Amino acid sequence: MEILRGLQKPIKELPSKYFYDEVGSQLFDRITELDEYYLTRTELQIMQQQIQDIAATLGPCCMLIEYGSGSSMKTRQLLDHLAQPVAYVPIDISKEHLLQASLRLSQSYPKLEILPICADYTSNFALPDPTQPGARKVAYYPGSTIGNFDRGPARKFLAQIAHTCGRGGGLLIGVDLKKDFAILHSAYNDRAGVTAAFNLHLLERLNHELNTDFQLDHFGHYAFYNPAESRIEMHLVSQRKQQIQVGKEKIVFDEYESIWTESSYKYTLDEFGQLAASAGFKVERIWLDTQKFFSIQYLSVI
């Protein structure tokens, strides 16, 4: 199967825009509740079991910076246990969701300074200065979203975080680990078809945003683990030969030709440690679940 090169760039570079509108967010929330999708519940279990140690590792008076904050629900557990955090800086591309989440947090934590930034967090942005100077800046990047980056962009993004946090700063990050192929396959090909609906919703967004004419019933969801690249690949596969109008351009699909919509890289602990080191970080702490499916790691800026 080949990649649809004409659409690969906007799909791969703008996942927040094309996957995570209101419908996409609702579908993803349903995915996180599926029996097959181990990632979210495993990460939450680690947080619940290790939160005291995690909070102590981040230390007192830190400025917490969350990349891709969304509803900030996971962050509440951290904020409940951090010692005198100086400020919370949520960063998200969706302005409406960001402001609503920030308002809810300000009501729950009236003494905490909340400084939201509406931006694509992979771009350059100015970090606001808190009223109180913090002991150090700590970034938070949960959910194993780092796995959606290819290796080169992942290194670049981590280096950007290291630069933002500066010497003495750190990063608390979720990293999904390599495991049995069957477990990975089930996680991205659930029996209820929710992941398929989430993937196909991308075409609805493209029809709306780019005025394309995709017929959703002419494409099928296909996800598989590529062991040579250590990643899950999600595709939308053309079920027939067809022609799609994209602006003034017509793109012809052969039967079984696909759009490669997403990657999700899996790591060993050593592999991620090497990636972190190449971006200016040192792995200080690692917390695992009992099955070693998932890791939460604290990295310090070298």
Rank of each mutant, 00 (worst) to 15 (best):
D213T: 03
K292C: 09
K292P: 00
N226L: 13
L203N: 12
I232D: 01
Y222H: 15
F272C: 04
T57H: 02
F224R: 14
L172I: 08
S94A: 15
M1D: 05
F181Q: 14
S144P: 03
K74C: 10
I51W: 11
G169I: 05
G169Y: 10
Y267R: 00
V194F: 05
I146H: 09
R191N: 05
L210G: 00
F219I: 08
F294P: 01
E255I: 05
T290G: 01
Y67S: 04
A192G: 00
D35Y: 03
K178N: 06
L200G: 01
Q297L: 13
N226S: 12
Y38S: 04
E209F: 09
S230R: 10
E2Q: 13
R30V: 02
Y20P: 01
G280K: 08
G70E: 07
S71P: 00
P130D: 10
G168H: 05
T40Q: 03
H221F: 09
A135G: 02
Q242A: 03
A159S: 14
Y67T: 06
Q45M: 11
I296R: 07
L7S: 03
A135R: 14
E2G: 01
E2A: 05
L99A: 01
Y265Q: 09
E43F: 09
Y141D: 04
R76L: 12
L34Q: 14
V283P: 05
A187S: 15
N199M: 07
Y267I: 00
G169F: 08
V237L: 07
L112C: 08
P133S: 11
Q245S: 13
R285A: 08
S144V: 03
